[in-house]
């Protein structure tokens, strides 16, 4: 028990060490650029982290306000997109015709730069909030469908035979077996599309939306060196938003699919 705890700490410990090392390296790099090499506009290349953080604290209310706009729209689109994506996965698992018809487009969509549509969508509807929701939903939808469907299809033949031997209705079959088996895939899809959803929202903002963290990013860029720490703060905030959404999904996953191998407390040791 203590051994496991110690090991757990050891794993997290190296993670913390790595993060600290990178931060140190960053500070060293900033010091080198600004004070040793004396490059022009050093802070737009690599600023001192502590100055970025102090700027972040200074502008914290604005950052939180704009960040919340981006995050809120992203998450709305993200939830709607995943709901539609999951429903479509179920529909595709129910009907071979639907699956055969849609799956080539699903696969092709993985190879297509969907985010390129962001400016077009904003160009068409000219409503920032709606565009963000729409784009976030759109980028979420495909990875969720594909991964959830993969989960449903990974069900073993004998599990299906077992349910058949109980003469389970289609509804029961989905409730007891297929939806459960789809969950790990669903979460894999959600984790893939979470950063995409945020990116999509930010891109809509860069294309001229009136508010959001992306707007703050662009406007602070325009003011050049004067606002450079502000700009880096927006970068940090958007990273934090991405990590926050990812974290929420991971926690949900742990709570809803505790049976998955990676959550087993024993921990399968890799050699």
């Amino acid at each position: 028990m203590t051994g496991r705890l110690f090991k757990k700490f050891g794993q997290n410990g190296t993670f913390v060490l790595w993060a600290a090392a990178i931060l140190l390296l960053w500070e060293a790099g900033a010091w080198f650029i600004e004070d040793i090499a004396q490059l022009t506009a050093p802070a737009s290349k690599l600023p001192y982290i502590h100055r970025v953080l102090s700027s972040l604290v200074e502008h914290f209310p604005t950052m939180i306000k704009q960040g919340a706009v981006t995050f809120g729209n992203s998450i709305t689109g993200f939830v709607i997109g995943s709901a539609i994506g999951f429903a479509l996965a179920i529909l595709m698992s129910l009907s071979r015709t639907v699956e055969n018809t849609l799956s080539p487009y699903m696969i092709a969509s993985q190879m297509i730069p969907i985010i390129g549509l962001a400016p077009i969508i904003y160009g068409i509807i000219h409503d920032a909030a709606l565009s963000r929701v729409l784009m976030a939903g759109y980028v979420t939808f495909f990875p969720v469908t594909i991964n959830a469907l993969r989960g449903i299809k990974s069900i073993k033949q004998e599990q299906l035979e077992l349910m058949r031997s109980y003469a389970a209705s289609t509804w029961t079959l989905y409730l007891k077996l297929k939806l459960k088996s789809a969950l790990p895939g669903l979460f894999a899809g959600l984790k893939l599309s979470a950063p995409l959803a945020i990116t999509a929202s930010i891109i809509v903002e860069l294309m001229g939306a009136p508010d959001g963290i992306g707007v703050l990013m662009v406007s602070s860029l325009y003011y050049g060196t004067a606002q450079v720490y502000m700009f880096w703060s927006t970068v940090l905030i958007s990273m934090a938003i991405g990590l926050l959404l990812y974290l929420i999904i991971t926690l949900l996953e742990r709570w809803m699919t505790p049976w998955q191998p990676e959550f087993r407390s024993k921990g399968r040791d890799e050699t």
Binding site: K156, E158, Q159, S165, Y166, T172, K176, K180, T257, W259
Partner: peptide, 27 residues
């Protein structure tokens, strides 16, 4: 009839008790 396969075919998200109760739930 009840059926038992070579592979236990237990649902990994169910405990021992819940697995045994599966057919009763289906019913």
């Amino acid at each position: 009839f009840g059926i038992v396969f070579q592979n236990p075919t237990l649902f990994e998200w169910r405990t021992v008790k819940q697995n045994i109760e599966l057919p009763l739930e289906v019913l």
